[in-house]
Amino acid sequence: MAAVFEKPSYWQRAAPMFRGFDGPLAFAVFLLVCAGLLTMYSSGYDHGTRFIDHGRNMLIAGAIMFVMAQIPPQRLMTFAVPLYTAGVVLLIAVAVFGITKKGARRWINLGVVIQPSEILKIAMPLMLAWWFQKREGQLRPLDFLVAAVLLGVPVGLIMRQPDLGTALLVLSAGLSVIFFAGLSWKLILPPALIGLVGVILIVIFEPSLCADGVRWPVLHDYQQQRICTLLDPSRDPLGKGFHTIQGVIAIGSGGVFGKGFMQGTQTHLEFVPERTTDFIFAAYSEEFGLLGNLFLIAGFVFLILRGLAIALEAPTLFSRLLAGAVTLIFFTYAFVNMGMVSGILPVVGVPLPFISYGGTAMVTLGMGLGILMAISKSKRLVQS
Rank of each mutant, 00 (worst) to 15 (best):
Y222T: 05
F318M: 04
V146M: 03
F51C: 04
Q70E: 14
Q133R: 12
M373Q: 15
I119Q: 01
G182K: 11
M340F: 06
L303R: 11
G241K: 10
K134P: 00
K379Y: 14
A28W: 03
G156M: 08
W130V: 01
V177P: 05
A250Q: 09
N109G: 06
G239N: 11
P116K: 11
F205L: 15
D53T: 09
G258V: 01
I371D: 03
A311F: 04
L230N: 04
T244M: 13
G324N: 08
A80K: 03
L321E: 09
E118Q: 14
A86C: 13
K7T: 09
I304A: 02
L303S: 09
V256L: 12
G254S: 12
T277N: 08
L110C: 05
M338H: 02
E118M: 12
V382L: 11
Y357T: 03
F354K: 09
K7R: 15
E270L: 12
P273E: 14
P207I: 07
T316D: 15
K121G: 07
M58K: 07
R75G: 14
F242A: 06
G370N: 12
L317A: 03
S285Q: 06
L372E: 07
E270D: 14
P217F: 03
G98N: 10
G324H: 09
F330E: 02
P190L: 14
R320T: 15
P154D: 04
I158G: 06
A323T: 13
S376E: 08
L128R: 02
W216T: 13
M127A: 10
S9D: 13
F300H: 13
F331Y: 05
K240I: 00
